[in-house]
Design a binder for these strands. Structure first.
Lengths: 344, 344
DNA sequence: GTTAGCACTCAATCAAGGAGAGTGCTAACA
DNA sequence: TGTTAGCACTCTCCTTGATTGAGTGCTAAC
């Protein structure tokens, strides 16, 4: 059987109606809702076909129909193919320029949650393709030195190292110069064993510290990478009865609190990236188990080359895909601009 | 009317039973549960008295009794007065020594939630009585310098400052020495205007930067102070039917996500501190509106003098007060030890 | 191919009727 | 005088059955 034009229209009408109401939609409703001028009986026949084809389903024998995951998928694909809509609203909402990445991300995710009324998340831009801007070792007290690592985009990491011997000021200065001249401007991947060997040699008796620092650099970047995720609007799930029962709500809330459960989503997103950077996961398509009754829309954002992060919106399957996608596009642009400004 | 010994025993029996079951408890249950050897009829008479006195109440005419807020209060006060119980379990759970305060706090709050099966929160120790350990300015690029501020307890704050003119290495070095010699070992309050004036004078043409740095120090410490709160186990509220309905759950979860709503709790706790540092808020006693159907147990912890933070456990009114308080005492001790170790 | 009509199904709602838990009160007992 | 047994009463909860209404599938007519 084929999805002819009439079937498509009916399917879309069903989905759109369901998105609004959250209730199963019957043949009579469609008969009046669309401008097809068909009787409910005809619609019923078509609906039976659509059900057989797997686009819609009945919660129980004498209820209306609701979209299946496959139905949503069809709807979303059709919509994504449409040309982009104009973007304007929400333009000013974002903030003055922010030094602190963390504050910026928290603000973004909050605004987004308020705007969409769904639960939202954002991952800090991954740094591992990024260039080291600056390293600084300082003595904190007799047995500890502080390593401050600044990465392009002004992301700052701190690390306290324990040392056995007390280091003199000159030694520290030397080490600082050594580290900076050798490593600045390099990405994490570009630091290879050969370089490390050379540096250790140059460091003489303090070669231990060199390797400790490099370990720290690698480690501290890796460590946070999969954890820096901010969320907002978790309690929006209670707006949607189909997600609000205790079992589901509890699991979802747990996922949002234990943020490392969200890393799967981030990874998946960065993996199967498409041209727009926007993806839609419906129901079981999502990589996070607890969201199997939700839809998830993700967008990749870029803060200069290589600095990619993920934004996610989590809501019911009957999410307002249109609005969500528009909002995310918009946000992508804004973040892009923000970066350019900062760079000036 | 007076609370004689028998009434007290009956009241405690009622509360204890209710803590376990969460169901209203009837006279027959108490008649068998206690070793008083009284018939249910006698218990009924006493219960009528207790109700009149306000310690218990009936959800509806022919249900058993449940404790009122006042009843809980009586129970908790009586319990707190008892001598401390022995502490042992959970001893090893805490961690190897942690450099990063943040990681430590996150771990603590998580372990606590798993242990108690309630929702938990912890506030980072307030720093404003604390001593500056170390300041370091570094040039990041032509127009930005990075100020790293380390405070006793190895709390690290970063701050990027914009400068108009490019600063030479020598200038930076001079400024670093100036700042450190003048400010190290001082608490935020001890930095007064006279000192700042002297420093500015010594800094000559770079006096702008001195004030900017000091501003940054003050600001960055203040800024985080009321926001660094970590939570865990939010979804534990679903274990308790009396908290799990949508309205309440949604509000609570929102409170836990918008952590600044919890600052009220922290402030309150630090304010009406008692000798043990442990407080119990029952129902409407809690300073956070959304928790009016919960009980909140808070503990003040100290990481060296002046570094005080708050731990909170939020659960239903029929919380296992005994266990919670024991656990918190335990934790206080452990954190205390941890600090001493770190100081060595 | 479309539509009207009818029989059928099922969830949701409501009222009625018990069952069960628990109470208050009274009268008897030690 | 304090305690207890017993009984009538109250109220929630659960079950049951009837009703309603939305929606369907099928068939026959247009």
């Amino acid at each position: 059987m084929q999805l002819d034009e009439r079937k498509t229209k009916i399917l879309q009408a069903i989905i759109r109606n369901y998105l609004e109401t959250g209730e199963p939609v019957g043949s009579r409703t469609i008969s009046k809702y669309t401008d097809l001028n068909l009787s409910s009986a005809t619609i019923r026949n078509e609906m039976a076909d659509l059900e057989e084809m797997g686009y819609i389903l009945q919660p129980h024998t004498s209820a209306g129909r609701i979209p299946s995951d496959m139905g949503y998928r069809f709807y979303v694909d059709a919509m994504m193919a449409e040309k982009e809509r104009e973007v304007d609203e929400m333009k000013e909402m974002l903030v003055e320029r922010q030094d602190k990445m963390e504050t910026l991300l928290k603000q973004v995710v909050k605004v987004l949650a308020q705007n969409t009324q769904y639960a939202t998340m954002i991952s800090a831009p991954s740094t591992h393709r990024n260039k080291l801007k600056f390293i600084q070792l300082s003595r904190v007290d007799a047995s500890h030195i502080l390593a401050v690592i600044v990465i392009e985009g002004n992301v700052i990491k701190n690390n306290i190292l324990e040392v056995n011997e007390e280091l003199s000021d000159e030694t520290l200065l030397k080490l600082n110069i050594l580290l900076n001249t050798n490593l600045n401007g390099l990405s994490i991947e570009e630091i290879n064993l050969g370089m490390i060997a050379t540096m250790k040699q140059q460091a003489g008796i303090h070669s231990d510290i060199v390797s400790e620092v490099i370990d720290a650099v690698a480690q501290s970047i890796k460590a946070d990478e999969d954890l820096e995720i901010y969320t907002s609007g978790t309690n929006n799930i209670f707006r949607y009865p189909e997600l609000a029962d205790q079992q589901r709500a509890s699991e979802l809330i747990n996922t949002f609190e234990e943020k490392q459960q969200l890393t799967g989503l981030v990874q998946e997103t960065l993996l199967d990236e498409n041209s727009t950077g926007i993806q839609v996961y419906i129901g079981n398509e999502t990589p996070v188990q607890s969201m199997k009754d939700c839809s998830v829309v993700t967008a990749t954002y870029e803060l200069g080359e290589g600095m990619k992060g993920t934004i996610g919106i989590i809501g019911p399957k009957r999410m307002d895909y249109d609005k969500v996608i528009r909002t995310l596009r918009n946000l992508q642009n804004q973040l892009d601009e923000l970066y350019k400004e900062e760079d000036k």
